[in-house]
Amino acid sequence: TRVETATETAWISLVTALHLVLGLSAVLGLLLLRWQFPAHYRRLRHALW
């Protein structure tokens, strides 16, 4: 049971790290898009909202 718990903890930390990385890359990508294509971003936002 001790090994299982350790594996579970490792998986949880791995998944958390993955989610953090994905979230950060998504935010960075959005910022980059907004910085590179302001007109396109505004049009996209206008279409979405």
Rank of each mutant, 00 (worst) to 15 (best):
A47S: 09
F37C: 07
V21S: 14
S13P: 04
A47R: 13
S25I: 05
L48K: 05
A6D: 06
T5H: 01
T7G: 07
F37Y: 15
S25C: 15
H19S: 03
R45Q: 09
W49I: 09
L20E: 04
W11R: 01
T16Q: 00
R42D: 09
R43I: 02
V27L: 11
H40P: 15
L33N: 07
P38I: 13
A47Y: 06
A39F: 09
L20N: 00
A39L: 12
I12M: 08
R34N: 06
L24C: 08
L20M: 10
R2Y: 13
G29W: 05
A26E: 00
H46W: 01
V15K: 00
T16W: 08
V15T: 11
T16F: 08
L22C: 14
G29C: 14
P38E: 11
T16P: 04
L32P: 10
Q36S: 15
T16H: 01
R34Y: 03
T1M: 13
L18H: 00
R2P: 12
R34F: 05
R45W: 04
G23W: 07
V27N: 03
L28T: 04
R42P: 00
V27A: 10
G29N: 03
E4Y: 13
R43L: 10
S13M: 14
A47K: 12
F37P: 00
L48G: 01
L30A: 12
L18S: 00
R45T: 11
A39K: 15
A6M: 12
R42H: 10
L24D: 02
Y41Q: 03
T7D: 07
A10F: 00
A47T: 09
L48H: 08
I12F: 06
R2G: 10
E8V: 01
R45I: 06
T7M: 15
E4K: 13
E8F: 00
T16L: 08
S13Y: 12
L18D: 05
R34A: 08
A47Q: 08
L44P: 07
A47E: 01
T9F: 08
L22D: 04
A10Q: 08
H19Y: 04
A6Y: 01
L20Y: 04
T1R: 10
H40Q: 11
T1Q: 13
R42N: 14
S25A: 14
L30R: 03
A39Q: 15
V3K: 02
V15I: 09
A39E: 15
S25H: 07
L31I: 11
V15N: 04
L22Y: 00
E8N: 02
L14R: 03
H19I: 01
T5Y: 08
R45E: 00
S25D: 06
T7F: 09
H19T: 01
W49M: 11
F37Q: 04
L31C: 15
L14H: 03
L33T: 02
G29P: 07
T7A: 14
P38A: 15
L28Q: 04
R34T: 08
A39R: 14
Y41W: 15
R34G: 06
Y41E: 09
L44C: 09
R2I: 12
A47L: 08
L24Y: 04
G23V: 14
L44S: 04
T1S: 12
A26I: 10
H19D: 05
A6R: 11
V15E: 03
T5R: 03
A39P: 10
R34V: 03
L44T: 07
A17M: 10
H46C: 14
L32A: 13
W35E: 15
A10C: 00
L32Y: 04
